[in-house]
Write a protein that binds this DNA or RNA. Sequence first.
DNA 1: GTTTGTGAACCACTTCACAGCC
DNA 2: GGCTGTGAAGTGGTTCACAAAC
Lengths: 251, 251
Amino acid sequence: MVGRARSAPSDPAAGNGHGPGPSRRIPEATVARLPVYLRSLVEAAEARITTISSERLAELAGVNAAKVRKDLSHLGSYGTRGVGYDVELLLFHVSRILGLTRDRGVVIVGVGYLGHALANYRGFSARGFRVRALVDADRAKVGERVGGLVVRHLDELGVIISGEDVAIGVVATPAAAAQDVADRLVEAGVRSILNFAPVLLTVPEGVSVRKVDLSIELQILSFYQQRHLADAVLGPAPDVAESTSAAPARR
Amino acid sequence: MVGRARSAPSDPAAGNGHGPGPSRRIPEATVARLPVYLRSLVEAAEARITTISSERLAELAGVNAAKVRKDLSHLGSYGTRGVGYDVELLLFHVSRILGLTRDRGVVIVGVGYLGHALANYRGFSARGFRVRALVDADRAKVGERVGGLVVRHLDELGVIISGEDVAIGVVATPAAAAQDVADRLVEAGVRSILNFAPVLLTVPEGVSVRKVDLSIELQILSFYQQRHLADAVLGPAPDVAESTSAAPARR
DNA sequence: GTTTGTGAACCACTTCACAGCC
DNA sequence: GGCTGTGAAGTGGTTCACAAAC
């Protein structure tokens, strides 16, 4: 999702591979899994587990153990052979790599049903994301109180972002407004955008966009469901099996 | 996300490559992009464009032209050399492959803020997804009217699913309830689940799960933002450049 | 004995580059 | 001349399998 041009072979920020500090380039696929490991580690810590093997962590995260080890090896060498990983230590390093040691301000643009849901979502604060402002283009909504915040007008975006230390912009507007909102966010200095509108946002280099599109997810499910039905009718191929992101078992 | 164990080389459902009907196995990555092409094609059709090149479609979809051609070639040979693709024809075939020619019933489980947002989301019906029922475990919410539907109790799930022709279940409950809800959906015959709860769902083989996790997306953005800041401080490597899912330009 | 960390093999996907067809 | 469809090459990611470390 977030593309990243590779840097030159001589990376000045490259670490030594086991000391503190981020080591080398972390693959995109690994980055996308770190939050999943983080969640599993938090669960383990809450269950008073102090040490965890790649095998067990893989199970909790729904991936394969070799992948866990390779992923974690990109962060440094924080495991102990014959023992496993110290949960608290790993928790700390994964958080650090993800940049979760400092809080990050979030502004939500668009206070429709989705904006309401996001403004009231508890999961954000748990990981250090603070919703600092709600903004809407509709003056009728300005002044309304939602999730402990007062809705402000879109035109104030610039002031809000510089004043409130906002790092991430969430676009929860209709498709037609999304590009304009993204432009304003970028203009105001936001370099990370989470887009819920079903449109392709165009942003300058250096700005990261991730998109969440309900309708696309349903269409993908529809494809596999249809194909599954076809298999059932025609008879599946000798070893056909459909599994899931959730079910690591691929036999 | 939706894993798919490869079938044996001798696939009985394999087509001939250009006639009607689905041809061979379509790569997962391609499936995930088809909805994006579909959206671009709808836009083109609305703009009265009758023919489109892979170049132009790539631009609209935010990918590279060779990828568009390879992706579309998996569906069959629906373009004309020297001309491009007929928009309506391609629209039809992409819809067909995705299984969007028939409507699909959706049940939303969990009528909190997110459930409300989903129940009122317009984007569903446009692609043939019909929200047929809303369900919640909280009896206080049962009977409430949301988005034109009356909330029913979770215990009625089985009856609702068989009675209303529901193909897809959307889990919009708190994390703690999600696995139980998924089990009930599967039990009732649902084979496609869209999960918004921040937990790993375990489902039997043959059931597809796709997950949408807000908090994970924010954490990924956080990683790239932090890394970006580090670059700025240390000075980027000679040809470092950060781009986006939205910006195909990778120079 | 157990479990990590990692080369090497493997696989899926992307991109190139051009033959084939309009 | 223009654009698709596709082998071939390239890239990134996964999985295997085992030596090293406890």
